[in-house]
Design a binder for these strands. Sequence first.
DNA 1: GCCCAGGTATAAA
DNA 2: TTTATACATGGG
Length: 278
Amino acid sequence: MEYKFTERGAEIITKNEFDLRNTFECGQCFRWNETDDGSYCGIVKGKYAQIYRDGDSIVIKNCTEQEFYEIWKDYFDLDNDYNKIRSEIADISPELKHAVDSIDGIRILNQEPWEALCSFIISQNNNIPRIKGIVSRLCENFGEKISNGYSFPSAETIAKLSVEDLAPLRSGFRARYIIDAAQKVASGSVDFESIRCTTLEQGRKELMTITGVGKKVAECTLLYGLHRLEAFPIDVWMQKALSTLFKEINIYNLGVYAGIAQQYIFHYSRLHPELVNN
DNA sequence: GCCCAGGTATAAA
DNA sequence: TTTATACATGGG
């Protein structure tokens, strides 16, 4: 992957290795929104960004070289060769090959662990538009004001609040889960940095000490927040997809990129609901 | 109004 | 150990 820095901002030279819509709208994140002109806006690590494709360039508007290397190269996982990973996934089964070949350029974002944990706690028994609304209100109410929006509030900030304080979020029964997660993260009883080095199983176990964090949310936190690409979240859609379209594959035999395969399976079945709903 | 949403805690079998 | 139900809220 090549980069250049122009008067427009930082530019990533890439064709089918990075599709903005498939990356931002495959269900892995909740703070990127498409604008009228087709660009996407989002906030990462307290930095607002506008990003769009122009020919063979993905342009991060007004982004300096320093900011690109500090935040975006890592966030967009630009050091991984996704075409190579896709061909490895395609080799596993014909069904997977079809899914991977029909969807361009999903990348697994390197999100901040606390944001991923909190977002996927909110996601449980919930739909994506509403999840985005709750996350948005969480930031507006308790994040820091920055230009063009609000940062994601820290676990330390949320840990000092009560369930009643979260009422403006209208997050329902999840409010107490958010508070418990914030307190355990802030106190260090759940420690993301140590989980980066543990086994998946150990990481899942530690995350599941949080009330409201079960197997699914734990696995999402490992995959999206700690970038453990072998993690494999299973939700209702995945179960449907695995029992119909993809029943030939063994999920325990997907290797180190299981999480990326999962993302293709998930997105493919969302794009073709009739194929998994019969 | 009705069904349901990228699940999990809790109680019961 | 496995299975059933409630959960807050609001999008479609």
